[in-house]
Design a protein around this nucleic acid. Structure first.
Length: 718
DNA sequence: ATATGCGGAGCGTGCAATCA
DNA sequence: TGATTGCACGCTCCGCATAT
């Protein structure tokens, strides 16, 4: 056996030179090999009986022979086994420190301080032993004094040549869950836990069949019923441990790693204070620099607590420390990875430059290499690529934002426009409302004229009066006289003023109209009523014209005696329902068939009021034919000057001494003014508030009704 | 939430055996 | 020879009971 060994005479005392580095955690039971030359102790340790106490330690990395010297003070590292039984068990390293020889130490053989003094404890075994004695004694002692030293024959056999472990398992370098940093202090143990640790072993030793939870149950029961004096011992110990923890924690928090993590957290926005400090108020100090608002918040763990107590518990707890230490480890890992990457990159660059250098032969010096490493083209390209990509991303974002902004702007513009329009309508409606309110007030307050005598008639003396019928004497459709109108007419007639009733009414004959007015309480002669039909009949007879009639069927009766065969003109009245496409087209065709087409319109009113609604008058239809046949309409009726002149002629009054009272600002008032008469607009009939600001016609006066107008007229007639 | 120690489930990986 | 399958291994996580 000895011949197979190469003595290296390397003392374990001198293990610091690097040949012994790896700790072994167990020393297994001893035994005797079947060959007799090696006392097999376990899978990991052998005592070699015939080699001066040579000890073979089989470690996880290999085997080591330790020889015991006569000086008893040194345990010599002897060499590597080359025997067939031990082939492949090459010694690599072992530290054989205290923990390694724990089993032996229990036998009083090994000083836990180190193997170097291992044989110093031989005093326990006996002094003056030779090497043979040593080995025998050692073996014996180990066999006699170690409870666990017993190995079955089958085990011996199987352990003679340890089975090679199958490969596989967890991959090298694969990341695992972060293990709490060993530098972080362990949380203090409670009194109960201390008691449990101590008692668990005892209970387990006496009742090895009990499971862990069962033992824990027993422990819990024991602790609950434990004498307070006995409890006090553990509670005090727990208090001491807490102090220990506080001290260690303080130190830990002052450590560079911890501070680094806290600074990093601060940089990420978790902390807002200007500096990190550790003081006696720990653990609150680190987290209280944000002010009392956040004193229940742990920024490291990003967690809120319902009370200071809970937070305090948390700050003492493992999770908080794990978060801190996790950060530290992450930091370290990142740093390591960065360094590794830098190394790879720099080697790549070096190699690249080295090739270039050797190819060009220009001999780039080391300093140049250094500079090149710092400004590595790999970095620059990477940076440029990243920068461009980032730039593209940002540009895309900006484009989207601009598009969105534009849409919102358009929407805004549209809304502003709508608001402006609505405001405009609102103003208009408010104006109209105020006008109506004013009118209403005036009506409630009785009749009112807007002008004094001096201002409205310009000192012109009234000698004759023309009155519109519909809308001034009575409301069209309703068929009832307007308040005060009957009285007003009577007053005019009583004053001796000549009165003529002018109307463009063409839906009934003059007789029918007179009868209607009489029924309403008015008193006038038939010839004082001036509808347009009698007037147009005079014109037709005078000019020898034969009309194509488009008038109301009733009004047609007034054309009795007028030759309508072979028409050479068209007479248009308020035909109402007879204004059909067919009839209008017939009139159009008649006009178009004439060599010199003539179109008479019995009035040119745009609309009038009937039963609370405005309806189309003859004007729009006359304009339609005028446009279609390209003719100029001759108006017979209001506002024709001829019409008004014929009325004035009948009265024997000059225009400047006559006044027209009407509800149609254009036909009545405007037409009269055009003839040189005065015009009064009454706020009845078809009157609308807009008429008071009519762009073309400015009445000489407004009056709420005929009665008010008559007041003005009678004063102006004096 | 944490400590205690242990056993077992479950997962991921690598390797060996097997098969086409 | 490559693909598939099964096994071994290393590791994590969980549960157990209890007090704090």
């Amino acid at each position: 056996m000895e011949q197979d060994m190469m003595t290296m005479a390397c003392t374990v005392e001198n293990a610091g030179d690097g040949c012994i580095t790896d700790p072994i955690n167990t020393l297994s039971p001893l035994g005797e090999t079947d060959k007799g030359d090696v006392m097999q102790t376990s899978q990991t340790a052998y005592l070699i009986t015939d080699s001066n106490g040579l000890v073979l330690l089989e470690t996880q990395r290999g085997n080591m022979f330790l020889s015991v010297s006569n000086e008893m003070n040194n345990l010599n590292y002897t060499g590597i086994s080359t025997s067939p039984e031990l082939q492949g068990r090459q010694l690599l390293t072992t530290t054989a420190a205290g923990s390694l020889l724990t089993g032996v130490q229990q036998e009083g053989m090994v000083d836990p301080q180190g193997v170097g003094v291992l044989l110093g404890v031989q005093t326990d075994v006996g002094e003056g032993l030779d090497t043979e004695d040593i080995s025998d004694t050692t073996t014996e002692q180990l066999l006699n004094n170690t409870d666990s030293i017993s190995v079955s024959p089958s085990e011996k056999e199987s352990q003679k040549v340890p089975e090679q472990k199958k490969r596989g398992g967890w991959p090298k370098g694969k990341r695992r869950k972060n293990v709490p940093n060993v530098n972080a202090p362990k949380a203090p143990l409670t009194g109960y836990v201390m008691y449990a640790i101590e008692r668990r072993q005892e209970i387990k030793a006496s009742n090895p069949e009990l499971s862990f939870p069962e033992v824990t149950k027993i422990l819990g029961n024991e602790w609950s019923t434990l004498d307070s004096q006995k409890k006090q011992k553990y509670l005090l110990a727990a208090e001491e441990d807490k102090k220990r923890y506080m001290e260690q924690l303080k130190t830990f928090q002052q450590s560079e790693a911890y501070q680094s993590v806290m600074k990093k957290k601060k940089g990420k926005g978790f902390l807002t204070g200007t500096e990190i400090h550790v003081d006696e108020t720990f653990p609150y100090s680190l987290d209280e620099d944000e002010g009392s608002m956040n004193e229940l918040y742990c920024r490291v763990c990003d967690q809120y607590f319902s009370s200071l107590h809970n937070k305090k518990e948390h700050m003492f707890g493992r999770q908080h420390l794990q978060n801190i230490t996790g950060e530290i480890q992450k930091d370290m890992q990142l740093q390591a990875e960065q360094e590794s990457q830098d190394l790879v990159e720099s080697s790549l660059v070096s190699s690249h430059l080295g090739n270039e250098s050797s190819q060009s032969g220009d001999g780039i010096c080391d300093s140049q290499h250094d500079i090149t490493e710092k400004t590595s083209p790999v970095d620059v390209q990477g940076f440029i690529h990243g920068f461009l990509q980032e730039n593209l991303d940002r540009e895309f974002e900006i484009k989207q934002i601009r598009r969105h902004f534009k849409l919102i702007q358009e929407e805004n513009t549209f809304l502003i426009k709508q608001i402006t329009e609505l405001k405009h309508y609102q103003n208009k409606l408010e104006d109209e409302l105020s006008q109506y309110k004013e009118i209403n007030t005036n009506r409630q307050g009785g009749r009112r004229a807007d002008n004094t005598m001096a201002s409205w008639n310009n000192n012109r003396k009234i000698k004759g009066v023309l009155l519109d019928i519909s809308g001034v004497l009575f409301e069209s459709g309703a068929g009832v006289p307007i308040d005060g109108s009957v009285e007003a007419v009577k007053r005019l007639q009583s004053a001796g003023l000549p009165v003529r009733f002018c109307t463009n009414e063409t839906t009934m004959t003059r007789n029918m109209l007179t009868e209607k007015l009489h029924r309403l309480g008015f008193s006038m002669k038939d010839e004082e009523i001036f509808p347009p039909i009698p007037a147009v009949c005079k014109v037709l007879q005078k000019r020898n014209l034969r009309p194509h009639l488009l008038v109301h069927p009733t009004a047609a009766l007034d054309f009795e005696g007028i030759d309508t065969l072979n028409p050479n003109c068209v007479v248009l009245g308020d035909a109402t329902a007879e204004f059909t496409y067919h009839n209008l087209n017939k009139a159009f065709q008649a006009l178009m068939s004439m060599e010199k087409p003539i179109l008479f319109s019995l009035g040119m009113g745009r609309y009038y009021k009937e039963e609370e609604e405005l309806v189309l008058d003859v004007g729009p239809f006359a304009k339609a034919l005028e446009f279609a046949a390209d003719v100029k309409t001759e108006i017979v009726g209001k506002p024709s000057e001829t019409f008004f002149s014929s009325v004035l002629e009948d009265m024997g009054v000059s225009p400047e001494n006559a006044v027209m009272v009407g509800d149609d600002i254009v036909s009545d008032v405007g037409g009269a003014q055009a003839c040189g008469m005065l015009g009064i607009q009454v706020r009845t009939g078809k009157f609308r508030p807009q008429d008071e600001s009519h762009p073309k016609v400015k009445p000489d006066s407004f009056a709420d009704n005929l009665l008010a107008a008559v007041d003005l007229i009678l004063q102006a007639s004096k």
